[in-house]
Amino acid sequence: MTSTTQKRQKPSAGTLILRTIALVYLFVLLAVPIGLILYRTFANGIGPFIDSITTPAAISAFNLSLLLVAIAVPLNVVFGVITSLALVRGRFPGRKLLQAVVDLPFAVSPIVVGVALILLWGRDGWFGGLETLGIKVIYGIPGMALATIFVTLPFVVREVEPVLREIGNDQEQAAATLGANPWQTFWRITLPSIRWGLTYGIVLTVARALGEFGAVIMVSSGFPGVSQTLTLLVHARYIDDHNTYGAYAAATLLMGLAMLTLLLMTLLDRKRSHS
């Protein structure tokens, strides 16, 4: 990311001091705590870790997290791309407002997201009628899905919109003059042009969906094996079960997923800047 092509000179005292401050800060803030968790998780070998993340409750938590990802990602991709197109290509009053609404979820506390969803979809909420029809949104999977979609909504738009803006619509117009209909233009020109931005947005969405805690805990009934995601599992093991090791193990699993995300992001970033 930063240029390393400049030749290395002998650093001055000021540079060394700043370098030390920055590295010690990052070491204390990031490396030490994370190292400690890894140490505590694997102090007795990998066996206990495997055992701890393959209990029935852990497996069902993993599956539920994946299910939420599987719901949130396609919806956010489809509507995110449509929204981006509307923001970049559309000429309609209130476009600025739409833009602001897209960014809104970043400014809203996860807990507030949960509260707002409860007040809309909960038993006493505006759409509480659904519950009497037997559709349980809050304290059920739909509520958790809504919470996940809410907090991950901006990612795809944020990544795709600038790419669309940058490529302009020259290529699309060129495709039209060459005989491509709008649908063909979208599949052959627009989608390939935004593919890396979209992929980046999806990676961010997946990471956030797997990691979301505050919004989801508000709308989940939290029953182990039923409505516990991986993050809720970490919390429940630590608070309710006093199973500190189990919490560490589940946290390490999530951390592994986060590292994977980070790796993908770094790779994609390079790809994106090359295309």
Partner: peptide
């Protein structure tokens, strides 16, 4: 990238 609950426990 790290889930907040993981940050907390870390």
């Amino acid at each position: 990238a790290l889930p907040t609950i993981v940050a907390s426990i870390v």
